[in-house]
Amino acid sequence: MLVLTRKVGEEIYIGDRICIKVIEITGSKVRLGIDAPASLRIYREEVLAKVKDENRFAAEWELADFRRAVEQISKDSRE
């Protein structure tokens, strides 16, 4: 991993289209400004971690759960 030291107001370029700027540092928190093409997905690491967790959790279905879901959906559509 490339490690760089930056002060508030200083920037880092990744390629020529992605710019990350240190906006503010308070205690252990850093606020970053990011300029990047709209075609890039940018998200906090926690979002990806949440989706991974949800996938792991979702992989626990048994056949009985599935059957109940099917029953409930037909009940829902009758209502």
Binding site: K50, V51, E54, A69, Q72, I73, K75, D76, E79
Partner: peptide
């Protein structure tokens, strides 16, 4: 991430 599927 958890949008409810059913109303009943």
């Amino acid at each position: 991430i958890r949008y409810p599927l059913f109303t009943s």
